[in-house]
Write a protein that binds this DNA or RNA. Structure first.
Lengths: 141, 141
DNA sequence: GTCGCTGCAAAGTATTTGCATAGCC
DNA sequence: GGCTATGCAAATACTTTGCAGCGAC
């Protein structure tokens, strides 16, 4: 089952170890973002001896080849996710829920930023918006 | 000279102490962003006994009333700045320089995000772009 | 077989907290 | 004068690092 994921690692020239394969699988299959510690807890189910430091080092390796991206949200530790497209984060100040808008919007943001940034060539874009999600706005305070 | 700054604090109902007044002054007069430690070093010139923990607590108080905003850049500790407008950060991967595009662009980003985020009400927008600044792009590698 | 990855342990950096006193309002 | 902010000290949270042996290629 995890065959395609392993291929993804090999293609990028990343040495494939069980640790990296599992870490990568967790990120890809969930499609979510996790802290290093969350990844660690999940992968430990199948690799009991796994060290948190290894998780950090593996995530760094995956980042180096562009498979993983990290974000620093307004609070809490860094979160990591499989790098798919640009990924704005919407953090609800009321319920704390973190959601992603349609990815297409990332490109519009990129475009807006590129045209107005005076020659700065944007390679990677991190957007975090704080606000109120539809659910919380509905249940008025 | 620092009269207007002190007023800004009073108007917001922040108890005015020398520590807070100086911290606030450093941020306003420089117009730059600093880590808590950088603020600390600067203010210590005039307030030798100042503790780093006090800087954190003061910055938090100023944040609570909307005078200060913080950003978490891709690397390093949090940076704080006087809250003026939306403030995208452009981080050059080559020289490490952090620049700000014209602030007007922030509003365009906000607009783009608001229209495509499915009812999420954006209150605060943090944008960090990694890329290559004009200077480094000129001196081709 | 080689070189890089991992486990283990420890250190390092960033940030927060408890408590008694000082100082703003 | 009351109540909060500060100094001081310690704790906590997150992340990185050194080293020796193991495992992927």
């Amino acid at each position: 089952m995890g065959k395609e994921q392993i291929n993804a690692l090999q293609e990028r020239g990343v040495r494939v170890t069980p640790q990296r394969a599992h870490i990568w699988r967790v990120l890809v299959e969930s499609g979510e973002h996790f802290t290093a510690e969350e990844v660690w807890k999940r992968v430990r189910d199948t690799l009991p001896g796994l060290e948190l430091s290894t998780v950090y080092r593996s995530l760094e390796a995956l980042q180096a080849v562009g498979l993983v991206a990290d974000s620093r949200l307004p609070e809490g530790p860094r979160v990591f996710e499989a790098r798919t497209a640009l990924h704005p984060h919407l953090v609800c100040e009321s319920c704390g829920e973190i959601s992603h808008p349609e990815p297409e919007i990332g490109w519009r943001l990129l475009e807006a930023l590129s045209t107005g940034s005076g020659g700065f060539e944007v390679r990677e874009l991190h957007v975090v918006a704080k606000g109120v999600c539809p659910g919380c706005a509905g249940g008025r305070e």
